[in-house]
Structure formats: C-alpha cells, structure tokens
Design a protein around this nucleic acid. Structure first.
Length: 211
DNA sequence: GACCAGGTCCTTG
DNA sequence: CAAGGACATGGT
C-alpha cells in the first residue's frame, strides 16, 4: 500500500475521533449482533432495530430459537428489513453453524480468530463484511469492517486502493485492538450518514480540514 | 415515481 | 474474472 494512503487514513481516523469521540455502537449480546449483522445487509439500521425488537417480542432473538423457528413466523418478524425470505434462510444457516457446527457461542468464543472467520465465511449468506462485523462487535476480535461507507469515504479523500485492500490498510494504521476497530468503523458510519449519503461528498471536512 | 439502503450469491460474457 | 441481476421493504 502506498505511503500516501496510509497517511490519509491515519489523518481521517484522527479527525473523526476528534469530531465524534467515543460513541456507543451495537450494544446487545452476541446472538443479537450476529442476527443484526445478517439483517443489516443492504438495509438501514433503523429497520433492523425494529426487526430485532420484534424478534425479542416473539422470543426469537437467539440462534437456538431461530434454529427451530417456524419459517413464516421468522419471515414475518424481519419483513421490515427487506429481502426477508433470503435473510430468514440465512439466519437458519447461521443458526445451524453456531448451534450445530460449533456447538454454541461459548465454543466459538474460544476459537482462534482465523478459524472463526473462516467458519463464518463458509456459512451461506455471510460474506466478508458480515463476518468481520460479527468478529469485531460480537466476539471482540480485532478484524476491521469495510463497508460501502468506508469505500465511499476513501474515494472522497482520494485513496484509490481497491476495496479489497482497504482492510489491511486500516489494520496497518490502527492500534490492533478490537475497541479501536469498533470505534473507527462507528465513526466512519456516523460521518457517512451525516455527510456522504449521496455518491458525492460536497461538504467533506476530511478534504478541507487542516486536522 | 425514482432512487437508495452498514451485501451476498448466482449467472453471463 | 468483471459485470449485471436478484433479493424486497421502507424512507426521502
């Protein structure tokens, strides 16, 4: 990766930290994080929150419950997140992986990060972003999450690395702790929601600020 | 009514 | 292997 890109990333991380400070993000237990990670695919968080509340109301907000849940009941509960048929199937796949393949969350918690990541990626419907979200926010592992917002902001500030290089780029710049990864990703999402909602980034403090 | 949302998988050329 | 489409509801 280029020195220039590392420099730019280092700089925006510092600016965003100063702007937002410590923000709480993705509270909830491990099961809720994993379920939310599937539901948030291509979906606004507000709708995911509503679906999670509905799942709680129906006692379906654990993977052990989802594993045997009625498919229609599951689909109904998550309908407001869109892609609800597909997501219901993905939740079932995740439930089987967690409860059967791994033998429960406690077993997952003692797996090595690479093994856990590989296992998650083997689940149908879990790609890199979802896997890293689960690792970082659910299991407190330092695996940085690259999402559409991150990619967009990098373009805004002139970092030209392809998307698949961004993860190592950030991990090379940040202190290698799950907390640093969580905060920085949260800052990026917060900033993106505030300024970079559209493809264009007209009011980008990241470009003009002397930071 | 058009367009987009914190992706992933499958099919084509 | 890059590009395009499907999945689906809810908000602006």
């Amino acid at each position: 990766m280029s020195v220039s890109s590392s420099f730019k990333v280092r700089r925006i991380v510092r600016i965003l930290k100063k702007k937002y400070g410590k923000i709480p993000w993705w509270p909830g237990d491990c099961d809720e994080v994993m379920i939310g990670a599937i539901l948030t695919q291509q979906t606004r968080w507000e709708n995911v929150r509503r679906a999670l509340d509905e799942l709680h109301r129906k006692d379906l907000c654990t993977l052990s419950a989802i594993r045997f849940a009625d498919m229609t009941a599951l689909e109904d509960a998550i309908r407001c997140t869109g892609f609800y048929r597909m997501k219901a199937r993905r939740l079932k796949c995740l439930a089987v992986f967690v409860e059967v393949t791994c033998g429960g969350v406690e077993r997952m918690a003692v797996m090595s990060t690479p093994a856990l990541r590989e296992g998650l990626l083997s689940v149908h419907g879990i790609g890199e972003e979802t896997a890293d979200s689960i690792l970082c926010y659910g299991f407190s592992r330092p695996s940085f999450v690259i999402d559409a917002y991150t990619d967009r902001i990098m373009r805004c500030i002139g970092v030209t690395e392809p998307r698949n290089r961004l993860k190592p780029l950030f991990e090379g710049v940040l202190a290698e702790t799950d907390e640093a990864y969580r905060q920085t990703h949260a800052h990026i999402v917060e900033y993106a929601k505030e300024f970079c909602i559209q493809k264009r980034c007209e009011t980008c403090i990241l470009v003009n600020s002397s930071g």
